[in-house]
Design a protein around this nucleic acid. Structure first.
Lengths: 141, 141
DNA sequence: TCAAAGAAGTTGAGGTTGTCAACTATCTAT
DNA sequence: ATAGATAGTTGACAACCTCAACTTCTTTGA
């Protein structure tokens, strides 16, 4: 692991450790995408589509240009996982909605991705809880 | 025996929170890459090159095909950030070595990426330390 | 010893991702 | 009503990524 330990701030070292942990799961995520025959950005898109949303919002969440979303959604739509629907209020907007099959795939996907990596699963449960509580506190504020 | 963590286990929730935290930093990472005029996979490659290594090892760390590494390294080399050098023991192997400029860029890059996100930096220092210690424990075992 | 098997890296084909500029259609605010 | 903004698409172009096929070199084992 190429942890760059910042001796001056515990938050910086914690962040580096989180990056290492996340990086160690890259291969697993790629394998999950392949398992569902989805390209990684397609998997990322489906992951964000718990609720219907305009294409522009998906672009925002993926931090990419909206013209890029057009192509990703094209491919998901041609596989029957997503539909483009007219928005009630604004005829410019296209709402993205998962099909039944899309919902099914998303459910499986999220389940597989939520499995914690061995480094976390191997922690004593008290430590798991402490970690969870700290992260809850960080992300709620 | 290994307990498969379900979605209610503390480790699973901690992992989900970590994924959220990491996902929230996607835009910042992309911005850093752009700042250095590096494509994201190029940035990822340089990040891993703290020490000289064969191309195959970089492929392993990036969890991608070695033919992909050829192209990424080509572009880094044409920018003068990396060199391909013959390996002493095995003439098939090409060792990747950062140039002086490559080292400089890598240093800046790692420094920028190590800045903790606001959610962590805003935690009380005692919590930062607790988080760091928990993560150290998880990643060392 | 030496032929077969295997590993490191490159090439080329083909599809996906990503950005940018330009465009259409629609909405909003004066 | 018109000017300006916004949502989404298109086309051009570069980078990414995998696969199969190939070269070069190393290792294996009969």
């Amino acid at each position: 692991m190429t942890t760059v330990a910042n001796k001056h701030s515990p938050a910086a070292e914690a962040w580096s450790l989180i990056a290492d942990l996340f990086g160690s799961q890259r291969g697993r995520f790629l394998a999950i995408a392949q398992e569902f025959e989805l390209a990684p950005p397609q998997m990322g898109a489906i992951k964000h589509m718990a609720e219907p949303m305009p294409m522009s919002e998906l672009a925002g969440r993926l931090a990419c240009d909206s013209s890029n979303v057009t192509g990703i959604v094209d491919r998901l739509e041609s596989r029957g996982l997503v539909e483009r629907r007219p928005a009630p209020n604004d005829r410019r907007v296209k709402m993205l909605v998962l099909t039944a099959e899309g919902e099914r795939v998303r459910g499986e996907l999220v389940k597989r991705m939520s499995e914690p990596p061995p480094q976390l699963a191997a922690l004593p449960v008290a430590d798991q809880r402490a970690l969870r509580d700290l992260l809850r506190r960080a992300l709620s504020g």
